[in-house]
Write a protein that binds this DNA or RNA. Structure first.
Lengths: 248, 248
DNA sequence: CGAGGGTTTGAAGTGCATCAAATAGTGTGG
DNA sequence: CCACACTATTTGATGCACTTCAAACCCTCG
């Protein structure tokens, strides 16, 4: 399969692009290309003029900001299927965060001006983008809330729950998607704190830890422990997509 | 002046509505009304089906969420000129937070379905809404960052700076817009912590406290103290509007 | 003047960060 | 297949920031 066909297939299935006119979609495909970035490579930097945006195909991309005094705040770590930099069109054409590949990662690179003109010309696309942005905002809201009201063990519990298939509450076995220290950073805590907090969670909810594999024996108990300090009941739909929405 | 004319004048000047077709604007005005809510009154509750959205005319409105275990996370406290509930159109027609009047407050109440149809029918309106949502998101981003990377005295300093006219760096005298304990909650800390942190800030930057009046003698020093732990340089444009964008 | 809020101050506790060191895991070249 | 080097993770000890609980203070307003 040629690269163009591959890109076409993926974009067609994406919520943001599915409302695109076929002719516009062809344009998107024509001006896009698949890129591969190595672990640790920077994709773009906060405030840099934005020319292109991206969709993750495989691997993981870390979104973050750096303060003047050098510390780093991680905004999110995106799996396959997620867009990054797409909101720059409305942000003065500057990237609102920096992005770095956490491991070898493949992405589709798409010109922003094309997105801009499609939004301007096609009301359906504008509408899709509005829903998309609202969704991103909801996730951001939840993220903020978690940081403020949940303590470290609760945040980990919440993270684990989001990694499960949230339909059923039976025992589940989970693989951490990336290094523990990266999970820690993602959850806004130090690796040492993560380690200790995970032990506490084990005490409190009876889960089992085996390297990067975690067995949830008592999901109900985990929910009670973690979701108490949250404004929404357990199957937190908005966040589910965060970890599981994949293109492939 | 009649109520309708008053509403018209205000909406015309608002960034979101200025692109409205005159005929649509007339519709908005016809179906809107000015309401007055008392201190402590709840305007709407998180997750409640959303029928109307609001623009603050005077007073203050607190946006917040409550966790299952009862604690409250304050999202923002809106002054005149700000919209609330307007994004519900894209949020499953549910309010994404609760809203309460902090004091006697006047608002314009506008039907959401009107907003929805105007966005669907008028590309300019859709575009205005996209920019609006991007702006809201940027502010939210900054809020998140502050909570994570700034300590209590720095957050207060940052809050004070946002209350000043950010053009000039000369000495400034500020009135806290509402009770200290509310400012504390707004900044995500306890009243006691606020009190102590403000004293520390006084030590560190030489400001003077007099009840709810605060004199900034050395703005430069305050900037250096507060903005070190932030990803953006001082005149933080996105946030300025937050405290000062008024309709009147 | 006295009641009741908001605010400050004190003392003690908690949670997380930091620094330091031990341990486990992983991949490499021999 | 083993030994080594290197990294990720855990564990321990200590410190700091913020919270909590309690009491005093202060201000305003009936």
């Amino acid at each position: 399969m040629g690269e163009s066909e591959a890109i076409l297939k993926i974009l067609e299935k994406s919520p943001v692009f599915e409302n695109c006119e076929p002719t516009s979609l062809t344009q998107f495909v024509a001006q896009s290309n698949i890129i591969s970035v190595e672990k640790g490579q920077i994709l773009f930097v906060h405030e840099e003029p934005a020319k292109r945006f991206f969709m993750v195909l495989g691997g993981w991309v870390k979104l973050f900001r750096e303060t003047l005094d050098g510390s780093q705040a991680i905004i999110d770590i995106l799996p396959a299927g997620h867009l990054l930099g797409e909101t720059s069109v409305f942000d003065d054409n500057k990237y609102p965060y920096s992005a770095e590949a956490v491991e070898q990662t493949k992405l589709i690179s798409i010109p922003l001006n094309l997105l801009k003109s499609e939004i301007d010309d096609n009301p359906k696309m504008a509408s899709a983008m509005l829903y998309h942005m609202a969704k991103v905002r909801r996730q951001q809201d939840r993220e903020l809330e978690h940081l403020v009201v949940q303590n470290a063990p609760q945040r980990i519990g919440c993270f684990l729950l989001r990694l499960t298939n949230q339909r059923e509450e039976g025992p589940a076995k989970i693989q951490l998607p990336y290094d523990k220290s990266l999970v820690a950073a993602r959850l806004g805590m130090q690796p040492e704190t993560f380690s200790r907090a995970l032990s506490k969670l084990k005490e409190a909810t009876g889960l089992e830890i085996n390297g990067s594999t975690i067995s949830l024996n008592n999901v109900r108990q985990l929910i009670e422990f973690s979701c108490a300090a949250c404004s929404s009941e357990f199957p937190c739909k908005d966040l589910k997509s965060k970890a599981s929405c994949a293109t492939q």
